[in-house]
């Protein structure tokens, strides 16, 4: 049994396998299928200061080896999270991380401050990369200056591990990563979904109510892997890699490219037990190839 423990800022994960925000609910939805004690952490559904109804249906369409979604951060708001969801999830035996999003810098800061007071939440993931909201979200993550501003503002008011989730819908993701690092981010997670669209030719209409949406699934994996590789060369803080990971081999690719930990997203929909299978697969790989620790594998691309 290899050492699977990894560190992200002050956060210690029992293994590098976590689940991506928006694909795992609050973890509760998966309790019939997996034991949270088997995985490194759960990034919970995007949370905003005020409740959001999300976008109108249809919000999802399957595409070749992937899917487009335009959920639009439907959630009941941070106060509801604190009063009703937190009491239920606070004793889950894994790192429970809140994904924080907003329309303005003030929203992000206010939301992060409220989460900061929750003892059982050791980190937040700052979502400056959601492509499915009209204001805020990705708008903050596609420009170095606004990314820097928001990370700086949240860093001031949030004391625990701050992970910044980056958008692939930029010319150079490494510049945004550097801006986040310079303003005190403890880690970056990448990539969020890739902007895309699909058209129903019979109706001559877009499939999604919002016309465009975020592409995820195995089809984006090469893009994500390339970005993790480039970002690993550009920053010193840990990288949490994601984008189309569907098995242990995919996860190991991300780790070799420079990720300290990984997130499983869309693959949870196809196999609700996949996260635990990937933990086992990584362990087998380490044993087979004689690695003592998964930490030795990060960036170990030859």
């Amino acid at each position: 049994m290899a050492d699977l423990n990894v560190k992200i800022g002050t956060l210690s994960l029992r293994n590098p396998v976590t689940t991506a925000s928006g694909t795992f609910g609050y973890g509760t939805e998966y309790l019939d299928f997996i034991n949270p004690a088997r995985i490194g952490g759960i990034f919970m559904k995007g949370t905003t200061l005020l409740p959001r109804e999300g976008n109108p249906y249809p919000r999802m369409v399957e595409t070749a080896s992937g899917m487009l979604n335009a959920v639009g951060l439907q959630n009941k708001g941070v106060d509801y999270f604190i009063s009703y969801i937190y009491p239920e999830i606070k004793n889950y035996p894994t790192c429970m991380i809140v994904n924080v999003c907003g329309s303005t810098i003030e929203d992000y800061v206010a939301c992060a401050e409220k989460i900061d007071s929750l003892e059982a939440i050791p980190a937040i993931e700052l979502n400056i990369s959601c492509p499915n909201v009209k204001e805020g979200g990705m708008a903050f993550g596609t420009d170095c200056k606004s990314a820097a501003q928001i990370v700086k503002a949240v860093r001031k008011s949030y004391s625990k591990t701050l992970i910044v989730k980056l958008s692939p819908n930029v010319t150079d993701i490494t510049e945004i990563a550097r801006s986040a690092e310079a303003e005190g981010a403890d880690a970056v997670s990448l990539i969020n979904t890739v902007m895309g669209m699909a058209i129903d030719v019979d109706k001559r209409k877009p499939f999604l109510s919002t016309v465009t949406g975020g592409l995820s699934g195995p089809c984006i994996k090469p893009i994500a892997l390339r970005m993790v590789y480039q970002t690993h060369k550009a920053v010193k803080i840990p990288i949490i890699g994601m984008g189309g990971i569907a098995n242990a081999s995919d996860a190991i690719e991300f780790i070799l490219a420079g990720a300290a930990a990984i997130q499983i997203g869309t693959a949870n929909f196809i196999d609700p037990t996949i996260s635990v299978q990937i933990v086992e697969g990584i362990n087998d790989y380490l044993d087979k190839h004689g690695f003592h620790s998964v930490r030795d594998l990060t960036g170990a691309l030859e």
């Binding site: 609910g25 939805e29 899917m67 959920v71 439907q74």
Partner: peptide, 9 residues
């Protein structure tokens, strides 16, 4: 997509 209330699609 998910069928178990996680993705909200």
């Amino acid at each position: 997509a998910c069928g178990i209330g996680a993705c909200l699609c």
